[in-house]
Design a protein around this nucleic acid. Sequence first.
DNA 1: AAGCAGATCAACCGCATTCAA
DNA 2: GTTGAATGCGGTTGATCTGCT
Length: 347
Amino acid sequence: MGHHCCSKQKVKRGLWSPEEDEKLIRHFTTHGHTCWSSVPKLAGLQRCGKSCRLRWINYLRSDLKRGCFTEQEERTIIDVHRILGNRWAQIAKHLPGRTDNEVKNFWNSCIKKKLISQGFDPNTHNLLSHATTTTHQNNKKKSNNYTSVFTIDETSLSSNKQVSMDMIKASLAALSTNFPHTNGVPEYQTSLSRLYESLAYNYKNLVPTTTNIENPNLATCIDYKNQSNSNNVSPSSSCLNPTEFGIINENCMWTVTGFDPSNNAHEEMQIVHEQEGKQVQIQENICQEEVYKVNDYEFNNNRRIAENNITYDDGSNFDFEFVDSALMPCGIYTNVVNSIDQLAWDC
DNA sequence: AAGCAGATCAACCGCATTCAA
DNA sequence: GTTGAATGCGGTTGATCTGCT
């Protein structure tokens, strides 16, 4: 079945021959870009315009990069996917010389599996708590002498078993030689650093999905990612809502005030962190465009997040260091323990 | 060498959006 | 405002490749 652009023509389908490629290239060299529906006729091709477009965009364009994806590119895809989901064309814009099709194929054939093997849900980028717990328990059944690799003293945990990243790191440092290593780095660090970066990232991208204390009747959500601005529609919360990580608790809370989701102009955002009785106020002037910019900045330089701070264009600074000492509630702690125990068990 | 299964990736399809008449 | 064509996008397919038995 043909398309609108070529319904009256007999069209060839399937792989492109070198001769067809040559005709298409020659067409672009002599005519430049024309309307796609006219391309087959002008280029002397028995293809539909849509097929020509796809062949040109995905294969013949001169500015395509080709070849294997670099580690940096892979990292960028994961980071942007965490925010945008399967919006391949948008993701590809962060990778000069790569096409949406290429990114999509790479994701489906490689990254997805890698994330799963590291214990992450490729759709939400959260730890696969159910899956890891299940395999963990299955493995546990196979052995009678299973013990957790964690040496965190239960009595040092707070009443509801909260634990900080600092405590986990300290425990793991003592055990690092017991884990398999890749390029000198113990493999558990991949899981740990991804969790860490997620936490840090979520702190940076506080989204008012909960309370607007100034006007509780206002829509409680604004979607920075331009998915929509409609009331009561959450952005893909898996990656944006910090409460999903359970890190918001009585020791470390945040609220957002002064938001008017219907207004894209500058709005004042006030974040209140309260830790150990000390209240820290961070005020930012944020409009959608700036948030985009911040996101772009992070996507392109995502390593900076791991350095615990980020400097904005206006010179102000946001410190992520408190993420290390912020307490994690029991559920997150269990996820971390399970996924790292699993790695220890596998090796 | 043959057969098979899984991985890869170019290309297709259908739908949504945009554009122009 | 409506309609139909053009374009863009994401999911899916299927041919080919690769590695294993």
